[in-house]
């Protein structure tokens, strides 16, 4: 579909950055998404579909997609891969029981052809909870050092307080911009 491809390219020229946020259910994706939008985070229920919002940030237009992560819904993730510039993988750092699941889902995504050009940001969320693993421990548990195919970074954060969210996103945008917008 030539026309659609060209229209998408045009959007890149608009400095539009498409960010796809995935992760297991209850990782805190929607809380992060709402925090970015400045919305109330006290009444969040599990996401069955997805949320999308456009935000202006540092001269870029960020299109942030927050897609629900329940096991039965993960097969829908592939519908949203197209044109993704940045993949945000959100981890519940206190959910030690599901780290193995978390690792395998992430590495499965990294095999996806349509995500091959995307920058990966791992948010080690809920780091402030008692008993939570540190970002370093999450990095080891998810075998991040094995990733050679994508630019990646892990950042600890708290979606509830908003700590480190901007730092993470800013790193990601800088990385994406250095790949895509170098001609400007």
């Amino acid at each position: 579909m030539v026309l659609l491809q060209i229209l998408r390219k045009l959007k890149q020229k608009e400095k539009e950055v498409r960010i796809l946020m995935l992760g297991l259910d209850n990782a805190g994706k929607t809380t992060i998404w709402k925090k970015f939008n400045g919305e109330d985070i006290n009444t969040i229920s599990p996401t069955l579909g997805f949320n999308i919002k456009s935000l202006d940030h540092n001269g870029f237009q960020l299109n942030i997609w927050d897609v629900g992560g329940q096991k039965s819904l993960r097969s829908y993730w592939r519908n949203y891969f197209e044109s993704t510039d940045g993949l945000v993988w959100v981890v519940d750092s206190a959910d030690k029981m599901r780290l193995e699941d978390c690792k395998s889902e992430l590495h499965k995504l990294l095999q996806e052809e349509r995500l091959s050009g995307a920058t990966l940001l791992v948010f080690a969320n809920k780091c402030d909870l008692p008993g939570a693993l540190s970002a370093q421990e999450i990095k080891d548990a998810l075998n991040l050092d094995e990733i050679k195919t994508h630019h990646w970074q892990i950042v600890w954060c708290s979606a509830m307080t908003g700590e480190n969210l901007l730092d993470g996103i800013d790193w990601m945008i800088t990385d994406i911009a250095s790949r895509i917008f170098t001609l400007d």
Partner: peptide, 22 residues
Amino acid sequence: ESTHEQFMIFQNYSKEMAHLIE
């Protein structure tokens, strides 16, 4: 919140419309 069904409707719409225009 949007549903996955809505997105699939959009994808089909998009393809068909673009094809028609092209």
